[in-house]
Design a protein around this nucleic acid. Structure first.
Length: 275
DNA sequence: AGGCAGGTTCTTA
DNA sequence: TAAGAACCTGCC
């Protein structure tokens, strides 16, 4: 189906934003997008028109929510004052089009456990191997081959340590294995955690083996879509040190600090951050 | 060859 | 409680 989208929406920036690892450019300008048990291709036709490789029903029922299209990111960007916060303003102009996707909490948890001390291509490679090993077939294409879903907790828990190791997880293999066991046993119930308040959710996440403050915040922002979470990685810490010696204005941007974090992260990686 | 990549755990004082 | 070391792997 073809749709015009007036709000901020840039496939390339979303794909490169580091929040998703199964959202890839195919080489011909189209994007392969996998989420939950669904897969489709998307491409931009002209300025604001996009072709989604799904039915209108499926788009309304699933993808509209996945792309968070009910929220106006354009309005949120208006909170940024060019005079008061020139660096964030520049970052938001540069990152205009990024949205925070509504992804699967389980997939996000495992993905960000894997992400520690890895670069994005390496994270993607590990996740792709996991999907191929233990996921279900959800799509096929002559360009990219068979598309697999992210493994369910029980499929992942059933993998041997040797199989996990074959996915280049390194020392993170034991973290992934334990998380899968915890979710399978019911000791960890990610769905029910949506009802917890922010502090209680953070506490639960930090109790997981291999999950520290950074990964927990990524899960809160990208897995639970709590848009005020502000994950601090090496890039963001560099930005805060160099550009915000007097502190970042978290109060100004609540409850959307996580969106600001995305702009800063995306911008800082291109910027070089020399000053 | 040695250092580093979207960190966390473990050890030591 | 707070630094410092160790940790898998792949890529420059």
């Amino acid at each position: 189906m073809i749709l015009r989208i007036e709000d901020d929406f840039d496939l390339k920036k979303i794909a490169d934003s580091g929040q998703c690892f199964r959202f890839n450019e195919c080489g011909d300008g189209s994007y392969s997008v996998s989420a939950f048990d669904k897969h489709m291709f998307v491409s931009e036709l002209d300025d604001n028109r996009y072709e989604f490789g799904c039915s209108k029903e499926e788009f309304e029922e699933f993808w509209k929510n996945y792309f968070d299209l009910s929220l106006s990111y354009k309005d949120i960007r208006r909170k940024i004052d060019k005079k008061k916060d020139p660096y964030l303003y520049a970052a938001s102009e540069f990152g205009k089009g990024i949205r925070i996707l509504r992804q699967n909490p389980w997939e996000m948890l495992i993905s960000f456990i894997i992400s520690q001390r890895k670069n994005i291509p390496a994270i993607k490679a590990s996740i792709e191997k996991l999907c191929k090993l233990a996921g279900e077939e959800i799509g096929e294409d002559e360009r990219v081959g068979i598309i697999y879903s992210f493994p369910t907790p029980d499929k992942l828990a059933a993998l041997s340590m040797e199989e996990l190791s074959s996915c280049s997880l390194g020392y993170r293999d034991k973290y992934v294995h334990q998380a899968a066991l915890d979710v399978c046993s019911g000791a960890v119930d990610l769905e029910s955690w949506v009802n917890l308040d922010d502090d209680a959710l953070m506490e639960k996440l930090l109790s997981l083996y291999g999950v520290g403050v950074k990964v927990a915040n990524c899960e809160i922002l990208f897995g639970y879509h709590r848009l005020d979470a502000f994950p601090k990685d090496v890039w963001i810490n560099r930005v805060l040190d160099l550009k915000y010696p007097d502190g970042f204005m978290f109060d100004e941007y609540a409850p959307y600090n996580g969106i600001m974090q995305q702009y800063l992260f995306f911008y800082s990686r291109m910027d070089g951050l020399t000053e």
